[in-house]
Design a protein around this nucleic acid. Structure first.
Length: 504
RNA sequence: GGCGCGUUGGUCAAUCGGCUAAGACGCCUCCCUUUCACGGAGGAAUGACGGGUUCGAUUCCCGUACGUGCUACCA
């Protein structure tokens, strides 16, 4: 049977790291088995729906190079791929479940539900939930006379459909990651399947769509483990038990400090991105920085995510997409959650920058440099700059941070380091050398250094005394590649200008 | 509270009963570099706890502790 997997996000906001990793594992699995990778949009919660989020998810997948084979925009044999457009399908199966006696109508108001929970919280032994213990005391088609139910239904009374979980069934599941698991069906509550607004909940929709779309392997986060019994029962009730996909519950990605699931807030607090790409909240216009915009190479981002919860056992950490496809195995995914380490994430990006050639880096770095420059950048100049500074670049934004002085006269941030120890001798040195530079015929790193050395000897000054001042004149601070290489690249005029700015 | 899942250095982690417990990130020291990095060489730092099983447990089993997830007409 052909492998078919799906990523099924809700279009509610930015695409989280964990979401991208789920996509990645789906994608790797599908590619390794010659299967299909489907994108399904789970937009059943109208109150949380955010305009633009669906397109944003598509953009993120494209940036990561994880494009689906079937999706709302591409289409496919099982369209529509948006759950909001599949309402009638869910209604049909919900009705079937009621018909079979595996689900029932419930008319309880939010207040009544809250009261039930309050009452049961006093009792520490039975959970405060809508289950086989409590459903007989609630207003539903199990507890009320048939005629009353019909009357309520005919009157158009708001109601939901709930699954009737059996009281004493042991539910087994063999998870590809977690292994054998057993649940007692009576401990799960009677989850709502169809909401009062006519939309299905996740529980119904995921089962119906996974079946109808022929999903063979289902990946999702471990936060879904507690609802496994409900889903397994649904597969059984609907008569599809033999077709249930193999499950793989992925470990959670945790906060770097403390504990708990990593959230967007943690990124804001600790100063790193959590979303794949910039996300602008359409209501507040608040922008949350993404990995793309902070300067990650997509391949590095994907590689880093692949290693967050999986490794091939050999110690290899750098994998191309093709290598990931051939090496990845669900069985080697960890069960335990992993704390996200931004330093390690940056290390991956640094590795990728180092192994990428200048031509490719030119394309990657250009938009970042031009954004800071405010206008188009001289590509030939950038091409010469890249080999000089790539060693010290961790993020693509560093090409500007480490190379801005090649394109623009720098602000002398560390001017004090020169002026504090300034004296007549240094003044004399730079003034005469500057004059000599004007008549220098060959302008190369070597000729510049030779000239510098010559003047140092002539003036009887220590080279160490004037190297740092020269650097700060050129760069503005105590960093950057060799000073003569910088001077060679920025040219005679600009070099003399920068020296003159200090010496007057 | 109930239920599920997890637990090897600060972090990510290897190990499928023989351990003097890999490797990576980070940290520290030194070298390189008349800057800052990169790079190179070293270093500190680990099996939650208690019982079993076994000739031998980090590895298998059971408890406990801790962590985490769920406990919505959200996914």
């Amino acid at each position: 049977m052909k492998v078919r997997v799906r990523f099924a996000p809700s279009p509610t906001g930015g695409l989280h790291l964990g979401g991208v990793r789920t996509v990645l594992y789906n994608y790797l699995f599908a590619r390794a088995h010659g299967g299909d990778f489907i994108l399904r949009i789970e937009d059943t919660d109208q109150s949380r729906y955010v305009a633009g989020a669906e397109q944003y998810i598509l953009d993120c997948l494209e940036w990561c190079g994880l494009t689906p084979d079937e999706s709302p925009v591409i289409g496919g044999p099982h369209a529509p791929y948006r759950q909001s457009e599949r309402k009638a399908i869910y209604h049909k199966y919900a009705a079937q479940l009621v018909e079979q006696g595996n689900a029932y109508y419930a008319f309880d108001t939010p207040e009544e539900l809250e009261r039930m929970r309050q009452d049961h919280r006093k009792d520490e032994h039975t959970p405060a939930q809508y289950d086989h213990n409590t459903r007989t005391k609630m207003r539903n088609s199990l507890s009320m006379p048939e005629a009353d139910v019909k009357a309520l239904l005919d009157a158009g009374t708001p109601h939901v459909i709930r699954i009737k979980m059996p009281e004493n069934v042991n539910i087994h599941l063999t998870d590809m990651i977690c292994g054998e698991m057993t649940f007692d069906s009576g401990l799960s509550d009677d989850k709502v399947l169809l909401k009062a607004d006519g939309m299905p909940t996740y529980h119904l929709a995921v089962v119906v769509d996974d079946y109808l779309m022929g999903i063979t392997h289902a990946f999702r986060g471990q936060e879904w483990l507690p609802s496994v019994p409900v889903h397994v029962m649904l597969w059984e009730y609907l008569g599809w038990g033999k077709h249930m996909p193999h499950w793989a519950h992925l470990p959670l990605i945790l906060k770097p400090d403390g504990n708990g699931k990593l959230s967007k807030r943690d990124g804001d607090r600790l100063g790193f991105p959590v979303f794949a790409m910039n996300w602008t909240d359409p209501k507040t216009n608040e922008v949350t920085t993404g990995f793309k915009e902070i300067g990650f190479i997509p391949q590095a981002f994907v590689n880093m995510l692949a290693m967050l919860g999986w490794n091939d056992g050999t110690g290899q950490e750098l994998f191309s997409m093709d290598e990931l496809i051939s090496h990845f195995s669900v069985e080697r995914v960890h069960k335990g959650g992993a704390k996200f380490d931004y330093e390690k994430a940056k290390w991956f990006n640094h590795q990728y920058i180092q192994k990428t050639d200048t031509a490719a880096l030119l394309d990657m770095a250009l938009p970042f440099v031009e954004k800071e420059l405010g206008h188009t950048c001289d590509k030939e100049q950038l091409e010469k700059v890249i080999p000089l500074i790539k060693d010290r670049c961790t993020l693509l934004t560093d090409f500007w941070a480490q190379g801005h002085f090649f394109f623009r006269t720098p602000e002398l941030v560390e001017k004090a380091a020169i002026t504090d120890k300034w004296n007549e001798q240094k003044q004399q040195f730079f003034t005469t050398w500057s004059t000599a530079l004007a008549s220098l015929t060959e302008w190369t790193e070597q000729s510049l250094e030779a000239s510098f050395n010559e003047h140092v000897a002539q003036q009887g000054i220590k080279k160490g005394e004037v190297m740092l001042p020269f650097r700060i004149m050129l760069v503005g601070g105590k960093y950057g590649p060799g000073v003569f290489a910088i001077a060679a690249l920025i040219g005679k005029e600009e070099t003399i200008k920068r020296v003159g700015a200090i010496t007057g």
